[in-house]
Design a protein around this nucleic acid. Structure first.
Lengths: 183, 183
DNA sequence: ATTGCCTATGCAACTCGTTGCATAGAAGGA
DNA sequence: TCCTTCTATGCAACGAGTTGCATAGGCAAT
């Protein structure tokens, strides 16, 4: 399980509540891990029980209290131990690729709008990454270790989106070609 | 759930037993979906109950009987229906990226062997893809629709691995740089 | 005034996916 | 001869992840 470790990293970078973590997982951290608030709350409670994180209740005005979590020593050493043991290269689960192969048994042209939708969504994500890069890393020569590592992960996201856009164009060209030949 | 649909596509391309499907998911189909034999057997039974697939027991000599599955009409129309409804762009779960950000709180140099291990594994997969491309698609101008779609999915796998290799080199350079500065 | 969204946390029920184990005959190597 | 590997299917238990719902006050727009 890596969700606990992703939470530890996020809390080390900046302590926060379950709700805040959920939003981070929707935004920046969404580029390397996803989780719903349900999962996060559940795992946070387990981590609290195990002494990995410490909680502090924080009153706020005009909104509900929140529980701010931060990493405790046992959590930090658990993260260190996890860092030292190997993880398996990720397994790919690409639903659109299944659809593309499935298109051989239906009209391939029907898939074009769907692929275009994906293309737009990846283009939007790339634009967001590039904006974020400009904002957070304007001067790459003046970054500390933490920022350099965040930046290299972001560059991975950017290159992934660029590659995906080029591939989706390839897919679209293929679908158009097959579409014309079955008119 | 897309496992059922991945199985339908695989059975349309070529009928087979649960065991054979499991091996395909380990090999070629592993480039867009993964599943263990347990999952496959369970889903196949459900699909059989739902009338999506038909079974035929096949006796073999010198090995156990097998149940060969093929797609029935309801399965085929279920696939068509799924093709016509939109799927969400995949969510990324990149454990190594979590580790890279985690490295900011330990010695970044310690992560180098792990990243190199991943690099080798991606290089090996790329080599396998390229070999498979030479074998299965030697003449790209002489492919039917099904092969063209299989080929474009394979090209996606190839480009993904190339991009990943370049990114891992970027990661390694970053880790080496940070390592030197903390000597 | 009502509708809907945002902050903030949580329960309950479910499906999906993994792991360990079991069976069982045949083939191949130490 | 024994040990392992391959083919082929399956049960049982568990852990991970999703979905729907609930509470509850504040804010903004129609």
């Amino acid at each position: 399980m890596a969700l606990e470790h992703a939470i530890l990293v996020s809390l080390l970078e900046q302590p926060g509540s379950g709700y805040e973590l959920a939003r981070r997982f929707d935004r920046s951290i969404g580029r390397f891990w996803t989780a719903t608030h349900q999962q996060i709350y559940r795992v946070l409670r387990r981590m609290e029980t195990d002494g990995w994180v410490a909680v502090e209740a924080v009153a706020q005005d005009a909104r509900p209290d929140k529980k701010v979590y931060s990493v405790a020593a046992p959590g930090r050493s658990a993260l260190g131990a996890w860092l030292r043991e190997p993880v398996e290269p990720e397994t790919v689960r690409h639903e659109l690729a299944v659809k593309i192969r499935a298109a051989a048994f239906e009209d391939p042209g029907e898939l074009i709008p769907e692929v275009e939708r994906h293309r737009e969504s990846h283009a939007a994500l790339l634009a967001r990454y590039l904006t974020g890069e400009q904002r957070d890393f304007p001067d790459p020569s003046a970054l500390d270790a933490q920022q350099q590592l965040q930046h290299v992960v972001l560059r991975g996201g950017i290159e992934y989106e660029r590659m995906t856009l080029a591939w989706l164009d390839d897919v679209l060209a293929t679908l158009h070609r097959l579409h014309r030949h079955t008119d």
